[in-house]
């Protein structure tokens, strides 16, 4: 099967958004969920009056992975995380965290969480704040120095929390989340407000924390952050999970960009369109994008660039440029979180 189409006009879905959206609109959420999931939600919903903050969310986080929970501001990420730790009650649906209902002592004992802005007593030092939490969590106070060292805050541990910079507050929040040496670490926008160096440090720390058996659920609206840290990604928009998979899976297969003389554009398209399994899109005048497609519309095997080049050249169409192009997570993100998504669309797992 092959198809040819031009770019969507301004104001409608840009390419490759349409391609990506259709590629992901295939499978259903339940198929890949298992009882071993560290976090599992089914049709999780939170409504505030007429506003649907989380809309039938099916989420699965597997043991030992760093799961990136990606979505624009207001997509429902923090509301979801709050439901997972029992801070807010879902309107409907189910959730299980480490096999326990959210907010129960047995579940909370295994979870470390930093939800939104780190919140501590301003009149206490960082160390004393952790001491309060350690007593409530039932962990030995000897853990305090260990976690402060882990986040590189030991030398300022005795200073009042109110004197901390934003980065130090974030690090103290992570330290508090680590106090219980949790099996599941939930971090909500942990790099918010950090300078570039601080963000890099925080990402390195999260990567280190995600080593071994610990599971990390990381929420962010920063695509490159998720891309760098996460093993798997869930993209949420308008309270719905619109895609879930590894970063590579979400980005899909390489496309091929071919620049030809604009006068030869139609000829080139005519030569490539009959080829089975290819879709040809005119990206801009003189530039063709060739995508490999299966009959169902999902991505297929890599494109044979050499064969395409040979077919064009031997048929008298000079090729000025030929290069592979891969969809960035950003383009996937915009494609899936755009306004084209409606309540009826299904989650895609790749």
């Amino acid at each position: 099967m092959s198809t040819t189409e031009h770019l969507a006009p301004s104001g409608s879905l840009p390419h490759p958004a349409r391609t990506i959206a259709s590629r992901y609109a295939a499978t259903t959420a339940q198929a890949q969920r298992t009882d071993a999931d560290v976090v599992r939600t089914r049709a999780l919903t939170k409504r505030y009056g007429a506003h649907m903050a989380v809309n039938g969310l099916d989420l699965s986080v597997r043991p030992g992975e760093v799961y990136g929970f990606l979505g624009p501001n207001g997509a429902g990420k923090t509301t979801t995380l709050r439901m997972l730790v029992g801070l807010i009650r879902p309107t409907s649906g189910e959730a299980a965290v480490l096999g326990a209902a959210p907010g129960t002592p047995e579940g909370l004992a295994q979870i470390g969480a930093m939800i939104e802005t780190p919140a501590f007593y301003p009149f206490l030092s960082g160390e004393d704040n952790l001491r309060v939490l350690a007593r409530y969590a039932g962990v030995p106070v000897s853990r305090i120095a260990a976690v402060l060292e882990q986040v590189d805050l030991l030398d300022r541990a005795g200073d009042p929390f109110k004197s901390y910079s934003l980065g130090m507050k974030q690090r103290l929040g992570v330290a508090a989340a680590l106090l219980k040496d949790p099996r599941l670490l939930i971090l909500d926008e942990p790099t918010n407000g950090l300078d570039p160096a601080g963000m890099a440090e925080m990402r390195a720390l999260i990567r280190a924390l995600g080593q071994g058996d610990r599971t990390v659920l990381l929420s962010s609206h920063l695509m490159h952050e998720i891309e760098q840290i996460s093993d798997r990604v869930g993209i949420v928009a308008h309270g719905r999970l619109v895609a879930e998979g590894t970063v590579d899976d979400l980005r899909g297969e390489d496309h091929l960009l071919i620049r030809v003389d604009p006068a030869a554009e139609d000829a080139a398209r005519g030569l490539l369109t009959p080829l089975d399994g290819l879709r040809v899109v005119i990206a801009e005048p003189g530039m063709l994008r060739v995508e490999a497609m299966t009959p169902s519309g999902t991505s297929a095997s890599p494109i044979d660039a050499a064969a395409i080049n040979a077919r064009l050249v031997t048929n008298g169409v000079p090729v000025r440029e030929l290069r592979p192009e891969r969809a960035s997570l950003e383009s996937v993100f915009f494609a899936l979180t755009g306004s084209h998504l409606t309540a009826g669309e299904e989650v895609s797992h790749v």
Partner: peptide
């Protein structure tokens, strides 16, 4: 005001005990 309820409530004890 300090949003510390959320920090306390995500520790081990339930809300009632705190």
């Amino acid at each position: 005001n300090w949003a510390t309820w959320k920090t306390l409530f995500t520790q081990r004890p339930g809300r009632t005990r705190i």
